[in-house]
Write a protein that binds this DNA or RNA. Sequence first.
DNA 1: TTAGAATTTGCATATAATTGCAATTGCAGA
DNA 2: TCTGCAATTGCAATTATATGCAAATTCTAA
Lengths: 140, 140
Amino acid sequence: MSRMTTARALIYETLETTQEHMTAYQVFDAVKPRLPSLNMSTVYRSLEYLTHEGLISVADVGEGMPIYEAVSNTHHHLVCEGCKKILIVEHEQVKGFFEKISQEYDFTIHTNHLILFGLCEKCRRAKENQSEELPKSLHP
Amino acid sequence: MSRMTTARALIYETLETTQEHMTAYQVFDAVKPRLPSLNMSTVYRSLEYLTHEGLISVADVGEGMPIYEAVSNTHHHLVCEGCKKILIVEHEQVKGFFEKISQEYDFTIHTNHLILFGLCEKCRRAKENQSEELPKSLHP
DNA sequence: TTAGAATTTGCATATAATTGCAATTGCAGA
DNA sequence: TCTGCAATTGCAATTATATGCAAATTCTAA
């Protein structure tokens, strides 16, 4: 049977109260003062556990390390590869798609945090201008 | 300026002809005989480069290492957390959703390989039965 | 309340992935 | 075809993550 231990509880509480996404190391730094014996492997294992329990979500934002956050208000992210800006997508916008896939493939989707990479409007425009205006020899 | 070097070309060619997804290590093993000087860091960097160029796609299947594949026929994956089975989702099924998000958020989506985790029909049913039929004391 | 079984943790170590830097390679222009 | 410079590679660390195992902790049932 699985147990909600001190370490797991503190880690979850931290993510829950912060309401921000954090890397494994940030979680470690935040919890360590209250649980000095805490070890990085416990952090990794606890995050994996909490994810599996559906209490938190992981997402790999591509640059750097994966981020974890409490799943209270389910949402998703658009990550701009140009300026690294992150846009929030409400689950409402995704729900229908998930339901369609679920039905079509008879598959219950657990994933609750989507990360889509691409270009925000500003960076897209910047790129278009660049391609059109620069002389060929200056292309990157 | 970016260059299509021997290493990058061989790595791409391997993924392209294989038409299978491979881990970084599998790519290394496949290319090494034809390019003995090849080094793992080159593999990682080349895979990153090819991904960025849109020639291949990465996907983190959760268990184990991320997998790479040539993007010829764009598709997506459903990964069953019960039996680890992988279902293929045609891009046709996803296209509409991407377009909607693109418009709504004025964001050009580059992501071309979605991985959704969950339970296939068989495992879902197995789990339902388990919850209903087992006496409380035998629960995991 | 406590004993005992089972899960979880810390530690040490292994594996995966990333990075700085010098040497090498590829390409545009002569 | 050759040259020079910028991009890429290999190597040797470094950092991030995962894992085996013994010790510690948690929970159930008596």
